[in-house]
Design a binder for these strands. Structure first.
Length: 285
DNA sequence: GTCCAGGCTCTTT
DNA sequence: AAAGAGCATGGA
């Protein structure tokens, strides 16, 4: 099969493996060649890496300029960022050393909303499976590669066809009603996604929490992984464990934690959170 | 069988 | 404002 490819040379602080396995994106899969295949913004790409050379199969220069450059957060200097985070404590230093190829992706806002509604009180393999089913049932067929069919994440309009029972059959459990309501509210623009991108963190979080199934943690994930809000500091069960055992936090209320995070880790605390999350999740597994 | 997973909503203090 | 119960589902 003839597929175009785009090569980026001299890429620092970039590991497609760490990015794909870091729990911020749910549509990346390892292939036989050590590369990763992912779906985003209606396209399928395969990424393989030879040290600081990143090869994106299924993309051309125009795609890269329009989609993937921003998706992979290529305009942020992670070397500089890491310099600013290093030397604070042994835990973060270890986490950065372990996951220095992580990047915070800039994903589709709508897709992140539904994906992280599904993530609540759930585990990553099952989140992935549910999203796969949803895409296959309600998204567009994109391509077939090595015998596997790939589908886009459905638009609000496409997903609005699904009833609550239909959604239950996608394996999302009791979150079926959350997804159903949220889809309707977004489709009717009772919550306008175009406005959220430009809001400050507080306002954006408040707006997102109007959606059923979106609380503080889910809102922070959405804003960090799709809106460049690096001051968002999502606190899940893992991060809570880190904060109480390593950073001596007794109270883990959203307000307390966010205040601590910004004061201690700085304006890019959300990215620090991601290094810590990736690190602790790979310790005992 | 119990416990847990990138928590939230709803109810009760 | 804060704390607790209940929630689908599958894997350990």
């Amino acid at each position: 099969m003839m597929r175009s490819e785009f090569v980026i040379e001299g890429v620092k602080k970039f590991s497609i493996e760490q990015i794909a396995e870091s729990g911020q994106a749910f549509r990346w899969e390892k292939d036989q060649n050590g590369g990763y295949t992912g779906v985003a913004f209606g396209k399928v790409i395969n990424v393989i890496q030879e040290k600081d050379k990143v090869i994106i199969k299924g993309a051309n220069k125009e795609d890269h300029q329009k989609i993937w450059k921003n998706y992979f957060d290529m305009d942020r200097d992670y070397g500089q960022l890491i310099k600013g985070l290093k030397g604070k404590d042994i835990h973060l230093d270890s986490a950065i050393l372990f996951g220095e190829g992580i990047r915070i992706l800039n994903q589709d806002l709508w897709e992140m909303i539904i994906s992280f509604i599904i993530s609540g009180n759930n585990n990553i393999p099952r989140i992935k499976k549910s999203i796969d089913i949803i895409c296959e049932k309600y998204g567009d067929f994109i391509d077939e590669i090595d015998g596997k069919k790939y589908y886009s994440f459905p638009s609000p309009s496409q997903l609005s066809i699904a009833t609550v029972d239909d959604l239950r059959k996608c394996g999302v459990g009791y979150r079926d009603a959350y997804i159903h309501k949220t889809t309707k509210v977004i489709l009717e623009k009772q919550v306008d996604l175009d406005l959220i991108q430009n809001m400050n963190l507080e306002d954006a979080r408040k707006e997102l929490k109007k959606l059923t199934g979106v609380g503080d943690k889910v809102a922070d994930c959405i804003l960090l992984f799709s809106c460049k809000k690096t001051t968002a500091f999502p606190v899940d069960t893992w991060v809570k464990k880190i904060l109480t055992t390593y950073y001596g936090l007794k109270k883990t209320s959203v307000k307390e934690v966010n205040k601590f995070a910004i004061e201690y880790f700085g304006e890019d605390c959300g990215i620090a959170q991601q290094y810590l999350f990736y690190y602790i999740r790979n310790q005992n597994l």
